[in-house]
Design a protein around this nucleic acid. Structure first.
Lengths: 199, 199
DNA sequence: CTGGACCGTCAACACCTGTTGGCATACGGT
DNA sequence: ACCGTATGCCAACAGGTGTTGACGGTCCAG
C-alpha cells in the first residue's frame, strides 16, 4: 500500500487539496453504505464503485486495496463526552443516549459491527476503538483505576448488545422500544457497571 | 430443495436410519466449525467438505444448497431451564450462567451470531430463536405479560452483547473476566430487566 | 504554448465460488 | 445371484471476485 505523499511548503500538516477529493469522498460514502448494509465480503468493490459512479479501479488507486478502503471507513470517532465535564451520577444515562445517537445518525457503527464480526482485522480495529475511547471514561468514573478496562468492557457488552439487537439483527421488540424507555432501562445498568463497588 | 422422504411403516415419525448418517453428521459438524470461525460467506462449501473429508458435491446432495446446510446448522435449542422450576429471585444469575455454558460448550452460538449479523435469513432465524425460547421465560418472571417481549429483548441485548464482546470480538478485558465476576455483574442486570417494575 | 502530472475508463488477468451431471462402486432386499 | 438404489468421486460449468496495466483526456505550472 503506497503512502500518500504531501508536498506542501506550509507548516500545517493539513493535506494538500486534490482535484480528486470529490471522488475520494464519494467512494468513502458509498463504501460506508455498502459495508453497513452487506458486511465485508458481500460489499464488493464493484458495487461500491457503481454506487459512487466511478470505475472500480479508482478504488484501488486511491485506497490501495479493499482492506485499505475498509481501514479508511473504520476510522471511527465515538465523540464521547469529556469525562471531566460529566455528572458522575448520570454517566450511564448520558452514555446510552449518546450511543443511540451514534447508531442512528450514521451507518458507521453498523458497518463497524458487521465487519468486525466476520473480519479478523475488523475485530482488532474494534478492540482498539473501545479500548482507546471508552476506557478513559471508565477511568474517571470508577472507584479503582485498575478496574477501568473491565468496567469499560462490561459497558461495551451492554451498549454493543443494544446496537446488535436493535440495529443489526432488528429483533422486533428491541426495535419497537422508545428512546426514553431504553435510556431508562439501560442507563442504570451502565451506571452500575461504571460506579458500583466491585461485587 | 427436495424434501427428505421417509418410507417407514411404523407409527413413530423418527427418521429411518440411513447408511450415510455418518457422512451427514460429519458435514454438519464441519459446517458448524467453519461457520463459527469464518461466518457465512467465508465458510466455503469446499472448505467444509475438506474438513469433513468428503466431496463438495455431497453437501449439495444431502442439504440441497449452502443455504439449506446453514439452516440445518442453525437449528439451535437454547435448552433454557423450565421457567416454572426457577427461583424467581435468582433467574438473572441462572440465565447468565446458562448462557456462559452455551457459548463455551459448543460453537453453535458463535456460528449463529457470525451468520446472523451478515446474512438476512440468518438474522430472521435468530429472531425466531429468541422470540420462541426466551420470551416464555420472561412471561413467567415478569409482572405484566404484555411487557414480556420487550423485557426478553432487553435480556437478549445484554446476553448477546456478552457473547459478542467475549467470544466473537474477544475484547481482552471481556475475555479476562472470570465466570463468577460475569455472573455477579450481569446477573442483577438480567434480573432487573425481567422482574423490576417498568421504570 | 508545451510538457508532465493527474484523473478516469476499459479490458483483461487469475482465481475462487456454488452448483450440476455423469460415472463407478457397494450395499441390501428378493 | 441379481438388480435397483444409495453412496461417493470427478470434472466441468457459468458467474463473480480483487487486482492490474495500458490508453486517452484534462488541468496547471513553466
Amino acid at each position: 500500500m503506497q503512502v500518500e505523499e504531501q508536498h506542501e511548503s506550509g507548516t500545517a500538516p493539513t493535506a494538500a487539496p486534490r482535484r480528486s477529493d470529490a471522488t475520494r469522498g464519494a467512494i468513502l460514502a458509498a463504501a460506508r453504505e455498502r459495508f453497513a448494509a452487506d458486511g465485508y465480503e458481500r460489499a464488493t468493490i464493484r458495487a461500491i464503485a457503481r454506487e459512487a459512479r466511478i470505475d472500480p479501479s479508482m478504488v484501488m488507486r486511491y485506497y490501495g486495496s479493499k482492506e485499505g478502503l475498509f481501514a479508511a471507513v473504520l476510522d471511527v470517532d465515538l465523540r464521547l463526552p469529556d469525562p471531566a465535564a460529566l455528572d458522575r451520577d448520570d454517566v450511564g444515562r448520558v452514555l446510552v443516549g449518546h450511543f443511540l445517537d451514534l447508531w442512528e445518525e450514521s451507518e458507521v457503527l453498523t458497518a463497524m459491527l458487521r465487519v468486525g464480526v466476520t473480519n479478523p482485522s475488523g475485530a482488532e480495529r474494534m478492540q482498539g476503538i473501545f479500548r482507546d475511547q471508552l476506557t478513559p471514561v471508565a477511568l474517571l468514573a470508577c472507584p479503582d483505576p485498575e478496574q477501568a478496562p473491565a468496567r469499560a468492557a462490561l459497558c461495551a457488552s451492554q451498549l454493543l448488545g443494544l446496537g446488535l439487537t436493535r440495529y443489526v439483527l432488528r429483533l422486533p421488540p428491541a426495535v419497537t422500544l422508545h428512546r426514553e424507555e431504553i435510556v431508562a432501562w439501560l442507563g442504570p445498568t451502565v451506571q452500575r457497571y461504571l460506579t458500583a463497588p466491585h461485587p
